[in-house]
Nucleic acid binder design. Structure first.
Length: 498
RNA sequence: GCCGCCAUAGCUCAGUUGGUUAGAGCACCAGAUUGUGGAUCUGGGGGUCCCCCGUUCAAGUCGGGGUGGCGGUACCA
């Protein structure tokens, strides 16, 4: 019987692309989120939370059909037959919230929010199907000042988190400029929509594939190392050169770049408009004291292809690091955003301009660890003081000690397991306890308790090689009168909590 | 989705041309030490050799199919 049930036991495991997070990481993440939150509030943004589930049609284009109801997004049918989905970003839910509550919200409405988002895609290293984003958005302002402010806020946040100036850059571009360039090479109009998409995707791969790789994607196509072939946009050589030189303009000196870009766009009204908007954003951030090493125009930024209508931003980490094989790698993008003037309007008859920025919390967290930011690499949290149980029949006495310590604000606990003293010490060690409280019958008879300093003890242990010594010395352990227990514990903990 | 590589204990891995009861290190638990973390020594628990089918007297090993993982690529709101 029991053998049969053993075989039927289910394997304990997390679903693909999902992960547990334990105490240490949670504490570090919360410190990081606190920093971002404080910056956003300093900039005048207020908190908002929306649910993880929305009606599918509110999220956007991924309407489930019979064939592929879960492509990209996790969806299921409610008991009233309506399709609902797990949110895949925090922007679409915000648009829904603003549209739903438009009349009573102050306009422009400035809010921030963080939370888990879900994507039903192939997971990979650093890519999960549930991950956390931290967003800030201004809804109801068409002013470039709103965009400028979002970019500055992103820059300040990164610096407060411990990323040095020069190790990151906020890169700026505009969908209007990209459209303008397409126009000048003859890719305007509805009939070229697919080609424009291919071109944008190719540009987006510039950092990974290099100039030559993108050149192939703009032309005939490209075959990768695994033998897979990607069909190209089929542009003429002249058009390819135009696009490439445009994209690379941001990497030369900024003044020359501006001249080049302006000249390229002089025949495109939409391009010129986008360029003027970018220049205005640039003027605003420069006036606020943000130089080109922090925020700069870069025509190769593409970002999400779907709902952006104007300026787009990308926060990139520029320092190089080594992977385990010793190859130099760049960390890359840890957040981005842009203007999405059409998103709220899907719910209302009027167009409502909006702009926002989204931080990939997990990726940024990994980056902060890499640069050794104290916000995430602080020492592991100390556990509770553990009161050992030596005489089972005196549980009430031990519980009373714990109560006294807790009343005094000392995190503490009674050992609740059934094991012997050695195992209890081991438990305290594993819990990262600073102190263990010991009272057997001998100490009780004398009206004393033993306090063992586990941190000092571990240091002393390093110098001891034989068990006899170890036993004889009992390092960092001493007796105090029962009545002084709380005071002595508090005194011992003080330097650690300071 | 497409291409390639891989799958043996919790982890990292050995396992000979197919051959008896599948091993090691680390980790875990216990004892040496009535009541003390570490070190040392001794012992112990832990296995669907990813799954199914096939070849064979015999499969962890060979063949086919599947599943899962890793890497690349495509998509990524």
């Amino acid at each position: 019987m029991s053998q049969v049930t053993d075989k039927q036991k289910i394997e304990a495991r997390t679903p693909r692309g999902l992960a547990d997070r334990e105490a240490h990481e949670l504490a570090a993440t919360n410190r990081m989120l606190d920093v971002i939150r404080s910056v956003y509030e300093l900039y005048g943004f207020e908190a908002l939370e929306t649910p993880a589930i929305e009606y599918t049609d509110a999220l956007g284009k991924f309407l489930p059909d019979q064939d592929r109801p879960n492509e990209g997004v996790f969806s299921f049918q409610d008991d009233d037959e309506q399709w609902v989905s797990l949110r895949y970003d925090l922007t679409a839910p915000l648009a829904r919230f603003v549209a739903q509550n438009y009349d009573r919200l102050p306009k422009p409405y400035r809010s921030y929010r963080s939370g888990a988002v879900y994507r039903n895609e192939k997971p990979g290293p650093g890519r999960f199907r549930q991950f956390m984003q931290f967003d800030a958005d201004t809804v109801g302002s068409a002013s470039p000042a709103a965009d400028a402010e979002i970019c500055m806020m992103a820059a300040v946040s990164l610096e407060r988190l411990g990323i040095a100036r020069g190790d990151y850059v906020i890169r700026l571009n505009s969908r209007k400029i990209l459209d303008g360039v397409m126009q000048t090479i003859g890719l305007g109009g509805e009939e070229n929509a697919l080609k424009r998409l291919i071109v944008l995707r190719a540009i987006d791969k510039l950092d990974r594939l290099g100039i030559e790789g993108v050149r192939h994607l703009l032309g005939e196509g490209r075959k990768d190392e695994s033998g897979d072939y990607t069909k190209g946009a089929g542009l003429s050589l002249g058009a390819i050169d135009t696009i490439l030189s445009f994209c690379l303009a941001g990497q030369s000196s900024t003044h020359a770049a501006s001249v080049d870009i302006a000249k390229l766009l002089e025949n495109s009204a939409i391009g010129a408009e986008g360029f003027n908007e970018l220049k205005e954003i640039e003027n605003l951030v420069r006036a606020a004291g943000f130089g080109a090493e922090r925020i700069r125009i870069d025509p190769s930024v593409v970002r999400g292809l779907e709902y952006y209508t104007g300026p787009v931003f990308e926060a990139e980490l520029t320092f190089e690091t080594k992977d385990e094989k010793g190859h130099a790698v760049r960390f890359g993008s840890i957040g981005g955003g842009g203007r999405y003037d059409g998103l709220v309007g899907r719910f209302r008859s009027e167009t409502i301009p909006a702009t926002g920025f989204s931080i990939g919390v997990s990726r940024l967290f990994a980056a902060l660890k890499l640069v050794g930011s104290p916000i995430v690499s602080a020492q592991s949290a100390t556990g509770p003081v553990v009161v050992l149980v030596l005489d089972r029949e005196r549980l009430a006495d031990y519980q009373q000690m714990v109560a006294q310590l807790r009343d005094a604000g000392v995190a503490s606990e009674l050992y609740l397991g059934g094991a012997g003293m050695k195992a209890q010490m081991k438990y305290a060690d594993r819990r990262n306890s600073p102190l263990a409280i010991i009272q057997g019958s001998d100490e009780k008879a004398r009206g004393e308790v033993q306090i063992k300093d586990l941190i000092a003890g571990a240091k002393a242990a390093a110098a001891i090689s034989t068990n006899e010594e170890w036993k004889a010395q009992r390092p960092a352990q001493f007796s105090v009168p029962e009545t002084e227990l709380v005071a002595r514990v508090q005194a011992l903990l003080k330097p650690q909590s300071a």
